[in-house]
Simulated assay, not measured.
Amino acid sequence: MTRAVFEAVLAELSALEDPNVRGANQKRGDDHGVNLARLREIARRLKTQQDLALDLWATGDTAARLLAVLICRPKDFGPDELDTMLRESRAPKLQDWLVNYVLKKTPHAEALRLAWMADPDERVASAGWELTADRVARKPDGLDLPGLLDTIEAQMKDAPGRLQWSMNTTLARIGIGHADLRVRALDIGERLGVLKDYPTPPNCTSPYAPAWINEMVGRQQGA
């Protein structure tokens, strides 16, 4: 990767900056003005380039870091690097992409999940719970699911927004995938009422855990 390539990519990102997109993103807490579909087009053209990804991340610019997430090689990062990257990810969209496109694919995911779940930084803790929800859905063997429900029952109601969302996702995943714990998961969701009034567009599944669980289980049973 040459300096010219790096500078050309930065120039391309700068040219995509749209004040209207930035304004819409700022309402959601994000600080970039690049259309994400256009960003993905750049990533598809560049393909995997770890060195370029590292240079883009080092800029500190959110759009550049989003692109870095798409073209990096997750297995090349060590746990300390990933911890630093997460703590540097202030924008919600950047954290979402980092968790889904990098952290879930790294061999360090389990160790980081355990280290992050009780972190005092709510963004870091929420990433730990997002990794937990993913493991509940894909590889639950070895997890203390009743213990997770205990923690959710005790802490989710008063958890800050992003952390609350991730804990709620874990609650729903437990209820959807584990029939023996479904009644308890539904009961916790109903008593706590978290996200019960969340505005949900037509034909979309509500994030309210009891509605989410019942919808997904109904689909499974009807398949």
Rank of each mutant, 00 (worst) to 15 (best):
A137C: 04
W97S: 05
N100M: 12
G175H: 04
H32F: 15
A115F: 06
N20C: 03
T48N: 10
T84A: 09
L16F: 11
Q49K: 13
V5K: 10
R40T: 04
R138K: 14
S166C: 11
R191C: 02
I152D: 06
R3A: 15
A179W: 01
A159Y: 08
K139H: 13
L148N: 05
L112C: 06
N203K: 12
L46V: 07
L13V: 05
G33Q: 06
P201V: 13
M156G: 05
L52A: 06
A179G: 05
V21A: 09
A68Y: 09
W97L: 03
V99P: 01
P92N: 01
L98M: 01
T132F: 11
K75T: 14
M216H: 13
L54R: 13
V9C: 04
K47S: 13
P146D: 07
I213E: 02
V183I: 00
I176Q: 09
P146T: 07
A127N: 01
A209Y: 12
L67T: 00
S126H: 02
Y101E: 13
T170Q: 09
I188E: 04
D197S: 14
E17A: 09
Q49N: 15
L36C: 00
H32M: 09
L10V: 07
R65E: 08
L16A: 10
L192C: 09
G142N: 13
D134F: 15
L103K: 11
K27P: 00
L148V: 06
A43M: 08
N35F: 04
L13Y: 08
R113G: 07
K75N: 12
F77P: 02
W97A: 05
P201E: 12
R3W: 12
A127K: 01
R191T: 10
K196M: 15
T151L: 14
V21E: 10
L86N: 03
L36S: 01
L16T: 00
V9Y: 11
V99A: 10
L181N: 01
P140D: 08
